[in-house]
Design a binder for these strands. Structure first.
Lengths: 161, 161
DNA sequence: CGATCTGACGCAATAAAATTGCCCGTTGCA
DNA sequence: TGCAACGGGCAATTTTATTGCGTCAGATCG
């Protein structure tokens, strides 16, 4: 699963624009189409590349507001966590959900059109599962958002010239 | 920029899998290839679809740890904000960055291989810009992560049968 | 040291998908 | 009723993805 310099270049390109033809990617990384294509295939099989998706403009689909919701709970067992995860999964407004260490137990990022819609979401959420200590922080603006992960830490193939 | 039911179906599909052939998308939404293709083109031109990207597995590229970094500051002017934004942009580890209302002024999501790498990142960050009140919260696990935005709020074309 | 095996590459053919041109039917409106 | 605008569909055409096959360099083994 180690990635050499060429693999990382390919991934960098694909993380920016997955529509780029393999031939062009190959040209940019110094390979012909076939070996470049095979590397991409392999990275897909290996699961390094999980999938290719269309990224939409949040404003244009009317979910320009992001809210971070922190949850503290006393229920620290696995069963409860699964239930919570299941409930959250039902809400497409929740685009990210993390189990946290420290003060807060869970953190989720929710996208909605406006404060009113958030309130509606909030009521529906607490209707599905009993949450006592919840606090919401509103984002006034998104300064940076990328799906591209840094590749500087990827496991490097040793014979990586 | 209003989207009808078919547009939303198309977007739902493309948010899940952008490799699906237009012909197949058309079949699923009840259209032939051409009109389906034209709708997609239009949504790309309109910027509803921003781009298509490859999504990688964080673990597989060795950035399995997410840290949420909260920043409070006294500098509430626009110039400082721009500088901060510029600095943050330089760090590929920062995948999301928000200006917040309330207690915290800024919130960023950072991805790194481990705690040690986070420490390194942190030092480099505060070396680039003077930040006094910073607090870090570590995610123990990612329970949900999707790039797919909910389309339930999208502006609906009135003649939407 | 030479035979061989493996892995990665590239070219050229083939298959699949995107893109375009052109025609058709429906709807709204003068 | 006649016309124009708005989709929609079929059938080319063009681009890309995918596969088959041959080559080459380095590692392995006897």
């Amino acid at each position: 699963m180690a990635l050499d310099k060429i693999d990382r270049k390919i991934l960098t390109l694909l993380q920016k624009d997955a529509t780029m033809p393999v031939a062009e990617i190959g040209r940019k990384v110094g390979l012909s189409t076939t070996p470049c294509w095979r590397r991409i295939q392999k990275m897909e099989e290996d699961g390094v590349i999980q999938r290719r998706v269309a990224v939409l403009d949040p404003g244009k689909v009317n979910v320009g507001v992001t809210v971070f919701v922190s949850v503290k709970t006393n229920e620290h067992n696995d069963a409860w966590m699964r239930k919570f995860a299941g409930v959250v999964d039902e809400f497409p407004e929740v685009v990210e959900f993390y189990r946290m260490s420290g003060d807060v137990d869970y953190l989720m990022r929710v996208v909605v059109p406006d404060i009113g819609a958030y309130d509606t979401f909030y009521k529906r959420l607490i209707g599905k599962i009993n949450l006592t200590d919840v606090s919401s922080a509103f984002a006034m603006g998104q300064i940076k958002y990328t799906t591209a992960l840094p590749l500087d830490f990827a496991i490097i193939s040793d014979d990586d010239k």
